[in-house]
Design a protein around this nucleic acid. Sequence first.
DNA 1: AATTTATATTTACAGTTGTAAACTGTATTT
DNA 2: AAATACAGTTTACAACTGTAAATATAAATT
Lengths: 142, 142
Amino acid sequence: MKEVESMSRAEWQVMRIIWTLGQATSKQVIEILERKTDWKSATIKTLIGRLQKKNFLQADETNRPYVYKPLISENAAIHESVTELFDNLCCMKKGMAIDDLINNSEISQSDIVKIMQTLNQKVKTAPETVNCNCLEADLNEE
Amino acid sequence: MKEVESMSRAEWQVMRIIWTLGQATSKQVIEILERKTDWKSATIKTLIGRLQKKNFLQADETNRPYVYKPLISENAAIHESVTELFDNLCCMKKGMAIDDLINNSEISQSDIVKIMQTLNQKVKTAPETVNCNCLEADLNEE
DNA sequence: AATTTATATTTACAGTTGTAAACTGTATTT
DNA sequence: AAATACAGTTTACAACTGTAAATATAAATT
């Protein structure tokens, strides 16, 4: 029924460790997450297993302990999640949501510059207004 | 275990109708969602019921059919969801995520202007860089 | 009042998620 | 080789979700 698997909140925490390290053993992930959370090591093992099943992680099994590597890039994963969430929103509200996000996130100087450039491009072709379509049948949801 | 209830994807669709109409009967919600989705009316009734249980909706039961009203504003709900999602992300990646979002969302002229103003404020105090904390214990998650 | 219709509430059921113990197989140390 | 320690795999279980049928209740019609 579900087209594409998605990553749960707890699974995200595991992926973040592995993305940041590039690859990791379960031991490494467990050590770090035991400091960050109050999860038992068994819980973390479960999460690693599920991430493999969902094809977000792959174990290099040539020698033990296995080394786990990401099968999806962090950027791709972020894109997927953020897009999925924004799909829930009224299209009229997306601008506001982004504004809110900017207000509540710590963003570096260079990222701010980058975003401004994006906006400068965007403004050239942006519509005067975006209408709410919450009540309309969306014929096309590609 | 769960501090605050959150809204599922399907429940969001129901709320969007009710926010947009201000209030609605189940019949109205069902009619609209039957055009937008392939859900059966029974499914939509279940969702309305769950939203009431989670205190996102309240039924005015003075006369039938009941009129359902939101107990949370659309903006508040958006803030909650978006914040929850961004909590998953590496803080170093949030700027990029926002940039990606802007690239992929239709945003009105006025929203763009608003966002630019926000950025202009933000840039004054923004840090040069934001460091990844994916491997660190977060002592404080208030 | 009895029947039909509309609407609201209960029950159902499989899959996902958070959370973790138990078990199994491999590697290391006596 | 036997015992121990680790790491990987299975099993568990309740709550939440998507999906919907069945049932109960109230309103409208006959």
